[in-house]
Nucleic acid binder design. Structure first.
Lengths: 209, 209
DNA sequence: AATTATATGATACACTTGTTTTAAGAACAA
DNA sequence: TTGTTCTTAAAACAAGTGTATCATATAATT
């Protein structure tokens, strides 16, 4: 926030508030009124500066066309909730037609949460089998579809021997795979590469209380 | 989508597209041009109908004030990240001027996550002291400012004796307060009412991996 | 067929609003 | 001081824009 004066900050905040409340842009006169500025021309002058500094964008001659540059990036992603995840069953890996069919529910999340990643889906956790990943019953895990992960990333791993799915940090070690619980007090588990199957990468957890 | 004619659907879609592209509302004349309608009055007529049917809302006399009702529900809340939460220190309870000052960071969350609640702020968890609430280092807790909670709700509780903050389910029992960890395998703690202070209600947890 | 409701059209009024112009006070460095 | 830059100020123009009015056409209903 370099080179932004007090009045201009007030104006920016007023525009933000106005947009939040009414979903359309204030006029220069609205801003003047809201910021205790006596005349449109002063607002005009500050808006010119703010536009030059890259904080806002306006379409010339178009009424109520102020756009906050910071909000341009606030895209909303719609993430399908594709089912549940529990210890004893593989997670429902989406197929091409899963994406187009109607999901049980759709989460609307900002890129703040999904970080713009593609191929994200959500699963609701059932039961307490993932406590050691700090994931409880009812939590929602956000999964990115992939069959490989980097060392240290949390993955939904299918354990072929136990016939169980689990959420663990994955490390590739010489001749074996180390699965490390998020709860650092717990011991890691070791598997032969052929005994585990990466079903997806966990990119987030959401708990609504 | 009952009782919506072809032209009105075209108008609705045009408004949606216009909003997506330019972030401000079209005028009746924009709509006329975009939908091959020869005159503002026809658009006006359809907008009246759409408003009566509840698809849109307009502020009378205000230019470019059409609001899509469907998008009201996917409102984005901006939640300020006001600091960190750790075992040994009280959480930074926001004061009136905290809200207007510039937060360290602002999370953009859909109402999907905040459920439209007001007075929400976010705290980043530091350390592993809240493992028993299934909250780990780096997690973000969403807190609603309040000093009272209902039985069973998860609260940020300041323990006066230990001089510690903790996240627990709160139950008011006869003459004492029961603090129950989210991890059901762990034992509850009991306190005298005067020894605990509710600092806020935890409405969600967000973990980005 | 007659009536009513709905959709389309053209035009015009009055208000809203972006923008320009001109001026002057305030802050600050040379 | 002087000059320069930034900010505030008032007023007015020209264009954008919501809306009303009147007229006609088309569809639905009785």
């Amino acid at each position: 926030m370099a080179g932004i004066s007090n009045t201009r900050l007030r104006i920016l905040n007023f525009i933000r508030k106005f947009l939040d409340e009414r979903d359309y842009t204030p006029t220069v006169r609205d801003i003047a009124r809201g910021c205790n500025i006596s005349t449109p021309s002063v607002v005009q002058h500050h808006l010119n500066t703010l536009e030059r500094q890259g904080y806002i964008h306006r379409d010339p001659k178009v009424f109520r066309s102020i756009q906050l540059v910071e909000r341009k990036r606030e895209a909303i992603s719609r993430v399908p909730l594709l089912g549940t995840i529990a210890a004893g069953k593989p997670i429902p890996v989406p197929t091409s037609d899963t994406w187009t069919s109607i999901p049980e529910e759709t989460l609307q999340l900002t890129d703040e949460v999904t970080r713009g990643k593609k191929g994200i889906y959500a699963l609701r956790v059932k039961g307490f089998s993932m406590i050691d990943a700090l994931v409880g019953d009812g939590d929602i895990v956000l999964v990115q579809q992939t069959s490989t992960v980097e060392d240290g990333e949390v993955a939904a791993v299918w354990l072929k021997i136990e016939q169980e799915v689990t959420l663990k940090k994955v490390y590739h070690e010489a001749g074996r795979i180390r699965l490390q619980p998020a709860n650092t007090q717990m011991e890691p588990m070791y598997y032969q590469p052929e005994d585990v199957e990466i079903q997806g990468k966990v990119i987030g957890v959401l708990r609504k209380l």
